[in-house]
Design a protein around this nucleic acid. Structure first.
Lengths: 145, 145
DNA sequence: CTGTATTCCTACTGTTATAGTAGTATATAC
DNA sequence: GTATATACTACTATAACAGTAGGAATACAG
């Protein structure tokens, strides 16, 4: 059940964008530096976020990336599902026809319940909720995401 | 977040054992046939469960596998963690030293919360809970796990 | 109009995990 | 002693992960 770096790095990157929201574009190299992530790899991750429409790019000098919506309108679940791909823990949750014994499948219920518990947490938080906490910490010294 | 076949098949296998609990050993080939899983692959999965102590083997003719504890004493979480490996979604949950920015890591909190929600569901159910439901269904015609 | 800074795109690579298959060794009931 | 079961080890094909690398396209500053 380990999360991929794609999800972890991607989430950190979009949080950086959320912190910067309303203050102009943030560049990949800045994010990469702050987060200690490879420039080139991060580029790919952000392009996933961009393709999803959560993030918009500005090319050329002084370019970078910005959120297309304010942080309080973006749930963690949205971001996570974009980064992680389909969130179904088992195929037959979304495609019951993919398993002929689904109707009676005991295990299916438990996987569904597990998945829903997870998603409920992710749905309940927005980027704004997380960065609010960051800003509190920020009153201290060495704040990082 | 897709579950591996290891987890899914393994869970189904131990549920078959739970259904058979108290009625002598159940053989790999029987489980494999009922569940539509490769004999040889299932053998490996069950050996994982055996190594964990949840399952005991009986060799030779009329041999097979039995649970070492009654189904109501085995939680789904136990089984899942054995099959899936470490359940941490991120390294730093168990080893905070593995990430130098952990203290302030905003994302960490959300992963922890997500993981705990998941585990709470799995902890709350035992094999007995699941097979109880199976037995109800069994009054109908074509019951399967 | 030119140069530079940035994103954009595609392809390549090493490593690891998954999902098995195969063959042989070992124990035991009869 | 033999058939029937598990036990163990090794092998393989495929895919995903986690990057690296290089150059093309674009936009702005001057």
């Amino acid at each position: 059940m380990k999360l991929s770096t794609r999800s972890r790095y991607g989430m950190r990157a979009i949080l950086e964008l959320a912190l910067e929201y309303g203050q102009g574009p943030l560049q990949i190299k800045t994010i990469a530096e702050r987060e200690g992530i490879s420039n080139k790899y991060l580029e790919q991750l952000i392009s996933i976020l961009k393709a999803s429409g959560l993030v918009r790019s500005i090319r050329g000098p002084k370019g970078g990336y910005v959120l297309t919506k304010p942080p309080h309108e973006i749930t963690i679940k949205e971001v996570f599902s974009i980064l992680e791909g389909p969130l179904s823990t088992v195929e037959c949750i979304e495609h019951p026809e993919s398993c002929e014994r689904c109707i009676d499948c005991l295990t299916r219920d438990i996987w569904i319940e597990m998945q829903q518990a997870m998603l409920k947490v992710l749905e309940s938080k927005t980027l704004a909720d997380l960065i609010q906490k960051a800003k509190k910490c920020n009153s201290g010294s060495n704040f990082q995401i």
